[in-house]
């Protein structure tokens, strides 16, 4: 038996909107510690890892570990029927081939339930090693989204270079080139407006902008984004989800042949 009650149901709506175009089908794993997902895009270039810790739910019951295969497009269609202020409860019985989403309006005057068919998904679970990253940049998520959107009008790839001076986003295309430098800026009024660079070694890596732009759909989940870079690893683009957990996007770099 599984029963997870999320008072801030909009978080789950936002999570789905941020991953449904990247990943078609995924297994949601439920254990006593939380509700999680790990899935790659169909090209195996990007990976998304989601964690919603059990403590973040108002009610969390998961009698035994469960893996529920869901089509994210269909899940998104159902969650879109929930109001932004609704409380969302996810329910499933052991061995059932369906999951139920229940939506309660804040005043309890409207209660809906949607039952969705589960699917068998044969997906490989990857072990993501703990790593020390050479450069970690934290910046306003809206600023990062703006940069990715702006650069994708000019080129297909972005070179992200971190030095002590700042982080540089560069692209080149048929019409010309673009460079955007964000300097470390910790003297702002609000901490979420700061750009903070923690660098042990300078790093410069190239990534497909199409994926970066897709990741920025998670911008509504967090005011800040953390970009972790190392020359031998995929970049990690992380959005914290309130007090509950995170959504992390991993993207393999493009390498000069």
């Amino acid at each position: 038996m599984l029963e997870l009650r999320l008072v801030q149901g909009s978080l789950l709506k936002k999570v789905l909107e941020s991953i449904k175009d990247l990943v078609n089908d995924a297994n949601f794993d439920c254990s006593s510690s939380g509700f999680s997902l790990q899935a790659m895009d169909s090209s195996h270039v990007a990976l998304v890892a989601l964690l919603l810790r059990s403590e973040g739910f108002e009610h969390y019951r998961c009698d035994r570990n469960m893996s529920m295969g869901m089509n994210l497009g269909n899940m998104s269609k159902m969650l879109r029927c929930a109001g932004n202020d609704d409380i969302i409860t996810i329910k499933a019985d052991d061995g059932s081939d369906t999951v139920t989403f229940m939506f309660e309006s804040p005043t309890q005057d409207k209660i809906s339930d949607f039952e969705m068919k589960l699917m068998d998904i044969d997906s490989e679970h990857l072990g993501i090693p703990e790593a020390e990253y050479q450069s970690i940049v934290t910046m306003p998520s809206a600023e990062f989204a703006r940069i990715c959107k702006d650069l994708s009008g000019i080129g297909d790839t972005v070179v992200i270079s971190v030095t002590k001076e700042g982080v540089k986003f560069s692209t080149r295309g048929d019409i010309g080139t673009a460079n955007i430098v964000c300097r470390q800026n910790t003297t702002v009024d609000k901490p979420e407006e700061a750009t903070v660079i923690n660098m042990s070694e300078p790093v410069s890596l190239t990534f497909a902008l199409r994926y970066m732009n897709s990741f920025t759909k998670a911008t509504t989940l967090s005011n800040t984004v953390t970009i972790s870079l190392s020359s031998e690893l995929p970049v990690v683009v992380e959005y914290k989800i309130a007090e509950m957990g995170y959504i992390r996007f991993y993207l393999a770099p493009k390498i000069e042949e």
């Binding site: 270039v45 490989e124 990857l126 072990g127 993501i128 493009k254 042949e257």
Partner: peptide, 14 residues
């Protein structure tokens, strides 16, 4: 020309 790497080249399956 750049070669797009894959995630599985960095992370192993369990």
């Amino acid at each position: 020309q750049c070669l797009q790497k894959k995630i599985v080249e960095y992370f192993d399956g369990d």
